[in-house]
């Protein structure tokens, strides 16, 4: 079991840069999406890069899922706090737009976490879709049936659509493909 001293032992600026970046990355990676708290920003693909700036300050890049995503500011603040709490000093958190976030960046662990939260993960490796026409079938997170229909293209947040399962009757959120 780790002792309190071990836990709060700061990774100082004098520390090995590789260890500092690793500790900062681990701390940042544990921050969760405030709107879907079962998924970490690392598994969501929002955490893009952790590195050491020329001035010895940890530099972190995050990217928004959607432009208007109201969670980005909170995520940035939480990343800042988590990295500082890990003793890596206050980092610089940059919001990067390019390359544009895609659902293909959600990791397998992230997809499992979404499913666990009752949210159907996006269809894999299909980040581009036709303007019109039918979608790839989405499986119900409750019973696994593919017999599901779209209720609304926009769910409770911009990144989710609302669907209903025709087999078990359960409405559910499906992560939109972007």
């Amino acid at each position: 079991m780790e002792t309190i001293t071990q836990r709060i032992e700061p990774v100082t600026k004098g520390a090995d840069p590789a260890r500092l970046v690793e500790a900062a990355r681990a701390a940042a990676a544990r921050v969760v999406d405030p709107e879907i708290p079962t998924i970490s920003i690392a598994d969501l693909g929002v955490l893009r890069d952790v590195r050491l700036g020329a001035d010895g300050v940890v530099e972190i890049d995050i990217t928004p899922t959607y432009f208007g995503c109201p969670a980005m500011r909170l995520i940035a603040l939480e990343v800042e706090a988590a990295v500082e709490r890990a003793g890596c000093g206050r980092p610089r958190v940059n919001l990067v737009l390019s390359p544009a976030w895609t659902t293909d960046w959600i990791t397998q662990a992230g997809r499992d976490a979404l499913l666990e939260a009752g949210i159907a993960p996006p269809p894999p490796a299909a980040s581009r879709r036709a303007l019109f026409g039918e979608d790839t079938p989405v499986a119900c997170p409750n019973c696994g049936s593919h017999d599901t229909i779209l209720i609304s293209e926009f769910g409770s947040t911009a990144c989710k659509a609302l669907r209903r399962c025709q087999s078990c009757g359960e409405p559910f959120h499906a992560f939109k493909c972007l």
Binding site: F67, G68, C69, F154
Partner: peptide
């Protein structure tokens, strides 16, 4: 959500 996208 449409409004929020445009605002972003």
């Amino acid at each position: 959500n449409f409004a929020l996208d445009l605002l972003g």
